[in-house]
Amino acid sequence: MSGFRGMGLAVAMLAASGGVAYVTWSYISAKRKKQEQTQELVAELDHIQLERPVSDRPTLSAVRELRQEVQHPRKQVLVLGLDGSGKTSVLNSIVTNRGSHSTAPTEGIHAVCLTNGKSRMEFLEVGGSEKLRPFWEKYLDNALALVYVVDSTDHSRLPLAKMHLHQVVQQNSMLPLVVLANKQDLQMPPPICR
């Protein structure tokens, strides 16, 4: 019986190490493919730059800026969550170092930049309304980390928040994630008894 246990343990360890190896290989392959695509795009931009007449300065400067953006993409902390979860209030309290409660929903994108000497961190909040949620995945590639804000007092929408969080994680499973249970300081409404 102990021989079967030992063999089962060995098979399980082999499967686990194979899974880790596969994930690592997939990540490295994706990184390499992205680098190749970036190099191809830079080469295309160089070609465009050579074809343009010298008198077309605005276009050349735009190509140079685009080329620099492709070579050194901006990285930011992406802040997502359902509408009303308190994303803007969290960002404002980080910037001002004091609590504030904003009730206006974010329509589109809200960007906040923190600078401390040579250090710079950008926070990019994308609105959480139903019409804006499909656009979340477009911002994942430039994200350095993800902060997912959940309204901890809105129990009826917790399953919806969980579903959208899982969808985002499936899009980029290697992205560092912080789930923030917001509004814990607020008093919960009394349960409805019938």
Rank of each mutant, 00 (worst) to 15 (best):
R67N: 11
T88P: 01
P73I: 09
S85F: 04
V95L: 07
H101G: 08
S100W: 00
P73H: 13
Q71K: 07
H101S: 15
G81M: 01
V70S: 03
K87R: 14
E69P: 00
L91F: 04
Q68K: 13
R98M: 09
L91Q: 00
V90A: 08
T96F: 15
L82R: 03
T106K: 04
S100T: 13
H101M: 15
G86C: 08
P105H: 04
G86V: 10
R74E: 12
V95T: 05
D83Q: 09
Q68D: 09
R74K: 10
R67V: 14
Q68G: 03
D83I: 11
T106V: 09
H101P: 02
G86D: 07
T96M: 13
S100P: 02
G84H: 09
S85M: 06
A104Y: 09
V70N: 01
Q68M: 09
S102C: 05
S85E: 02
I94T: 08
T106H: 06
S89Y: 04
S102Y: 00
K75G: 08
P73W: 12
G86M: 07
I94K: 03
L80G: 02
D83Y: 10
V77C: 10
S100C: 14
Q71Y: 04
Q68Y: 10
N97G: 12
K87Y: 13
A104W: 00
S102A: 14
G99D: 10
I94S: 03
L91Y: 02
G81S: 07
T106S: 06
H101N: 15
S93H: 02
Q71M: 15
T96A: 13
L91P: 02
D83C: 10
G84W: 13
T88V: 04
G99A: 12
V77D: 01
